[in-house]
Design a protein around this nucleic acid. Structure first.
Lengths: 192, 192
DNA sequence: CTATTTCACTAAACAGTGTTCAGTATATTT
DNA sequence: AAATATACTGAACACTGTTTAGTGAAATAG
């Protein structure tokens, strides 16, 4: 299990610098000073390395969101969840990419371990929205649509940012705009 | 100019089926029954084919949004813009992907023709929001943040859909959920 | 009508990719 | 000492984007 870890460490490091497509099995092999063929003794193919990293990304995200669970007020919990979700995306663009943007063999992902972590996180999010609904925080009682709408905003915000679709805004203003937008959606949710 | 068109037609057709990375210059050459080297007489490299297609995508999007310009009421115009933006993304996932998700050599995109179309569309969107602000439609007067927030939601909605991040919702419910979310963000904007 | 230049195109190569497989050298077990 | 298992690799296969030297046909010039 020592070798698997060394491969993942090298792969994550390289992916961070050059992106998934920018890194070859040969690059990873070179980084750990083994032959390319050795990689295949530990991972079936490149996509399996990807899934293993996606699992790690999901774990990092889980840890990033963990403190949220301790907040008692559903509304405060929801806000902090959103804030930290976005913060995770901004701080770990490659991990966020891996989890929510990159094209992957999605047909098989339900069987992967990383899927469980994702589902758990999403369930926690929906439950928090449900708690807000139960506390009569919103006029609307459509938990599913509320949760999905808030997720759309957060995901849109992060993915426009990390896939560089904010070129029409000067670079130094982008993060501030994202922050203001988060505050705005919170205000909008208040009268939802 | 006949050959350039044939290359683009073949490329777009193939990209639609197998995605950008799934198609090689050799595949395109094969499709139009020429040698791979011939492609390079008409396009500098693969990325230039990409930019040409991105331009076409931007044109399709522009045409899709064109009817919106005729709507007098700023608020109605804004709603219809959103509706049609999302509709474009759902109907042409590969074009939307090309425009707003795919990683591209973004450093040079400002010099490309497609950038102008994108900027024009975004300006029109912001101007519509500004018209709503001028008409005292919102309490907030922060046009930039309002526009960006609405865009985040729409982009998040489309990109979660077309990059298959809605697996936790049964397939037949996804589109309905998207529709309900759009209605919800409209309601949310009303009390913005 | 021949000679030259231009044009549209390609075969073949270079350096890279993911992946496989036969084979080697070392360590462990019998 | 012989047999087996372990850990690894060199070399190949079929692919990729891209470049270069060169072909054969058409257009132009003398």
């Amino acid at each position: 299990m020592e070798m698997r870890k060394r491969i993942l460490d090298a792969a994550l490091h390289l992916f961070r610098e050059r992106g998934y497509d920018g890194v070859s099995i040969r690059n990873i092999a070179e980084a750990i000073e083994y032959s390319p063929a050795t990689i295949y003794l530990y991972y079936k193919d490149k996509s399996e390395i990807f899934f293993a990293l996606q699992f790690e990304a999901a774990a990092v995200k889980r840890d990033h969101l963990l403190p949220v669970a301790g907040i008692e007020s559903p509304w405060e919990r929801l806000i902090e969840f959103g804030r930290r979700y976005i913060d995770f995306g901004m701080k770990h663009p490659d991990l966020y990419d891996l989890l929510f943007i990159t094209r992957t063999p999605m047909e098989s992902i339900e069987n992967q371990e990383c899927w469980k972590l994702g589902v758990a996180s999403h369930s926690f999010f929906v439950e928090t929205v449900q708690a807000c609904v139960d506390a009569r925080f919103f006029k609307s009682t459509d938990t599913e649509t509320i949760a999905y709408t808030l997720w759309c905003h957060a995901h849109g915000l992060v993915s426009l940012f990390i896939r560089e679709r904010m070129r029409m805004y000067p670079e130094e203003k982008r993060e501030a705009l994202a922050k203001k937008s988060f505050e705005m959606i919170v205000k909008m949710a208040e009268c939802l």
